[in-house]
Design a protein around this nucleic acid. Structure first.
Lengths: 197, 197
DNA sequence: CTGGTGTTAGTACCAAGTGCTAATACATAT
DNA sequence: ATATGTATTAGCACTTGGTACTAACACCAG
């Protein structure tokens, strides 16, 4: 192992720990052919926490993901207000994982998912399925944006068991997404009121 | 805190650690009103590893998940055939996590996501965004179904930088989803050598 | 009273550190 | 040539959250 300069070593150190957070100072010292103390000084300068903290961070991150990925699959966006068969509002915070790396713009299906989830939720029925949707992505959404989606139940066709819902998503009061959803439901509006909530 | 029997305590210990693997023996001792040594003996009998090992286990598990969840977010469905700016085919296996628990029918946004991903992929450009989509969910899809989606590029409006794509998804040769997507792209078909932007 | 089970206390030791002081090497500037 | 600064190394005390082990005590049953 050739002895690198401080800068080179620290650069490699960052990479190495990034790739494998489970490596000890001792192992790193051997790898870079320096003393353990040097590794410690390097970590300090680079503000890299000690092994146990790194492992803990990874563990905590994973625990977050667990909490995140389950409801994320269930309902996209957090429903903050709902009046069944009338209207509903949800918010969705766009994160790095929702955007194209190349340009930082949110993938369309995430916005669709938020709207679709809300359309399902607003329907006061056990069974609600999307039959048709016409959507328009009017403005790009970026990571860090908070998307607020409002659903309004527009009408019904009781014979065909259909409910029509309008959806509008905004970021900072600017419309980013519009959609008209045709939903299928088993029962008509108002037939579910035996058990009043 | 009432003093439980050994069995009760060990039962609760298992639960407690399961819920929060980050708890130390000392905290547990306080919680159960016994000595630290007792907690250690309990852990031995129950073969529960020490705090650091538990955290490490969580961290390692999460690292596995990372590999799994990333490509899942990147493209929904596996692209098995593609001819840029012409057509593409992807398959998507519907799993339990994609369906409503209540009725076992796939949530619409997963089918939309597969179609949307494919529409983005078929466009031979750095930047492709969904502008508008009209979709029809013609038949419910269930867990275990293999959805095959075909994308066909229908036309273009070079002035407006738009590309029109038709999508059809089938399960066992039966159509479950149809969509017309209007996509925005930076450059026209075949113009990808120019630096027009 | 003796034995078994459960619990507690205490000691020595370990890994992987932090925090601090001191020594050394080496090049650069004056 | 001597001083200054940076990089590196060594050593020691201390910390956390343990393991491994021994000894003691309480209490209940035979």
């Amino acid at each position: 192992m050739k002895r690198r300069t401080k800068k080179e070593r620290q650069q490699l150190l960052l990479q190495t720990i990034e790739e494998n957070p489970f490596v000890t100072d001792e192992q790193l010292a051997v790898q870079f052919n320096v003393s353990v103390q040097t590794i410690r000084l390097d970590r300090m300068e680079l503000s890299i926490p000690e092994l146990r903290e790194r492992i803990k961070d990874v563990a905590e991150k994973n625990l977050e993901n667990e909490v995140k990925s389950l409801p994320l699959d269930e309902v996209i966006g957090e429903i903050i207000d709902i009046e069944l068969d009338a209207r509903a509002i949800s918010i969705f915070d766009v994160k790095e994982e929702h955007v194209f790396q190349r340009n930082g713009i949110a993938r369309g299906h995430h916005l669709f998912a938020q709207a679709n989830s809300l359309a399902v939720a607003v329907i006061n029925d056990e069974l609600a399925l999307t039959v048709r949707a016409n959507v328009l992505f009017s403005k790009p959404v970026k990571a860090g944006d908070r998307v607020i989606t409002k659903a309004t139940v527009r009408g019904q066709n009781t014979e065909k068991n259909r409910t029509y819902i309008d959806l509008i998503s905004t970021v900072n009061n600017s419309v980013v997404f519009k959609g008209e959803f045709e939903m299928y439901r088993t029962k008509g509006k108002g037939e579910n009121d035996e058990t009043s909530y």
